[in-house]
Amino acid sequence: MQKNKGFSLVEMMIALLISTILFLAFFSIVSQFQIWSSNLNLLMERDANVWLAPLLLSRWITPAGNNRWNQNWSGVAVQTGRIEINSDIHGPQGFPDSELSASFEALVLRCSKSNLRVKSGSGSFQPLIKNIADFEVDSENMPLISVRLKAVTDRPLFVLTENLSESTEFLFFLRNYRLNLFSEDPR
């Protein structure tokens, strides 16, 4: 009985030591795993923003310039880091009504505070796509509009110090700027 008790204490101490080493090793692995997981999350969010961009932008940029009633406004105006899109696409009867009063008929897109922001009509700029550091638009080859986006991660990645921004370029063909052999006069 006496002999067994003394042996248990030593045994317990050795077991505690081994457990401590094991737990330390385990938590260091887990913390590494968490770092990888967190970094992966940030990169995935960055990529998701890039994936969303063509869908959102194509729905707004592609129909630019729908001007059935020959009104005196320009369909597309490009400035540095900013694009204005006008398109008479709706009206009270469900058809273009010669006014740019419905939602999303007069849009401005620009980048500020690491977000791509959109303004509809006389409203204020609202965030559209997160973590966009740079937004460039080129209308030199109309009716093709080139849009370049630089997506960044929400915050710096752990451990890694390299630049992990993702740049991408989209080309949008403006359907309302297609050449016509005959004039489009509203008769």
């Binding site: 592609t62 696409i89 709706h90 469900g94 297609r178 016509n180 489009e184």
Partner: peptide
């Protein structure tokens, strides 16, 4: 041989289609 003249092109959404 004369191509149709395009007088408009728009995307319709469920809330605006008629």
């Amino acid at each position: 041989y004369f191509p149709p003249t395009q007088l408009g092109w728009r995307i319709l959404f469920p809330e605006t289609v008629q």
